[in-house]
């Protein structure tokens, strides 16, 4: 460190840090605190907040079926997505790693979906899933599988899987690019040695490659999990939580309670936010703690 460490120039530090701290305090820290405060109150417009203690929490946790339905949907999404996204991405990254011609092009093309807003993606997939002329049903009819055609987003049984498919389509390319970078940073001798040992493709994948890229894999799994715990935009554009709550996520339910349903109370939705915030932060802490302390592989 430099000599300035003897006596920090507080004046300069204040000037450099103050704008960021003001923004952070006013528009991040304060809203978080205010949300927790809200969660203990009945918050109606043009009226002083009325303290209700833990009543909101009690209602939410013990008698709000819609909330639990949304929690279940969100957890299904958050647990299924990482496996698909990261699993398929690993296979694709290995395929590109095998030095196929045009790998640079593939990499750039596959990354594209994550650069698009969920609004654009949502509308595209509403069309793709359209019953009469969507690409999915058109393909099924082409293959003579007319009995399989259905309104994919209109049926409670298929709506959530259909949306999970969309996020998988969107994020697989991103995971692939990250994994490819991680594969390229490995010493090639290790992978070549496995080739010499003449072990099968599956064994090589399981015993050599996966352990080597494990830190990256775990990061991506956690990332995908957290992303789905927060998902809102895609659902809002495609199904608004329907049909019959089958795609309701915690975020969309919170939005409805705060800004759509004319209950006007901002206290109860704040309780949803507070509970979900605590759950997400706990998941992050637990997952990073559990996954990080595992021994790193030496090579």
């Amino acid at each position: 460190m430099t000599r300035s460490s003897d006596r920090p120039p507080w004046g300069a530090i204040a000037v450099f840090l103050l704008p960021a701290l003001v923004v952070y305090t006013a528009l991040t820290a304060y809203p978080v605190v205010r949300t927790f405060w809200n969660s203990l109150h009945k918050v109606l417009p043009n009226r002083p907040d009325e303290f209700v203690g833990l009543a909101n929490y009690a209602t939410l946790l013990f008698s709000d079926d819609t909330f639990w339905r949304s929690v279940r949907n969100t957890l299904v999404w958050a647990c299924a997505s990482p496996l698909f996204e990261v699993g398929i991405a690993l296979l694709l990254a290995l395929a590109l790693y095998a030095k196929v011609p045009g790998s640079r092009f593939f990499r750039i093309a596959w990354f594209t979906p994550v650069l698009m807003s969920y609004v654009v993606v949502g509308i595209l997939w509403v069309w793709i899933y359209n019953y009469d002329w969507g690409a999915v049903n058109a393909l099924l009819r082409l293959l003579g599988l007319d009995t399989w055609t259905r309104a994919w987003l209109g049926k409670p049984e298929t709506a959530l899987p259909a949306l999970i498919f969309v996020t998988t389509w969107m994020w697989t390319g991103f995971n692939m690019v990250v994994l490819l970078a991680s594969l390229h940073s490995l010493p090639s001798e290790v992978i070549e040695a496995a080739e010499l040992d003449n072990c099968g493709w599956g064994a090589k994948l399981w015993h050599v490659i996966i352990p080597l890229v494990k830190p990256t894999l775990l990061n991506l799994l956690v990332l995908s999990f957290i992303g789905k715990m927060k998902i809102f935009d895609l659902v809002w554009i495609t199904t608004k939580g329907g049909p019959l709550w089958s795609t309701e996520t915690v975020s969309t339910y919170l939005y409805k309670r705060a800004f759509e349903w004319s209950t006007f109370d901002l206290g109860y939705p704040s309780t949803i936010a507070a509970v979900w915030f605590v759950i997400i932060m706990t998941c992050v802490l637990v997952l990073t703690r559990v996954l990080r302390t595992r021994d790193r592989l030496e090579y």
Partner: peptide
């Protein structure tokens, strides 16, 4: 500042609206 990276937007959105 770093920990705010993982904050879900839902935790601030209602209070931001009020503010």
């Amino acid at each position: 500042i770093f920990s705010a990276i993982i904050f879900p937007p839902q935790i601030t959105i209602i209070a931001l609206f009020q503010t």
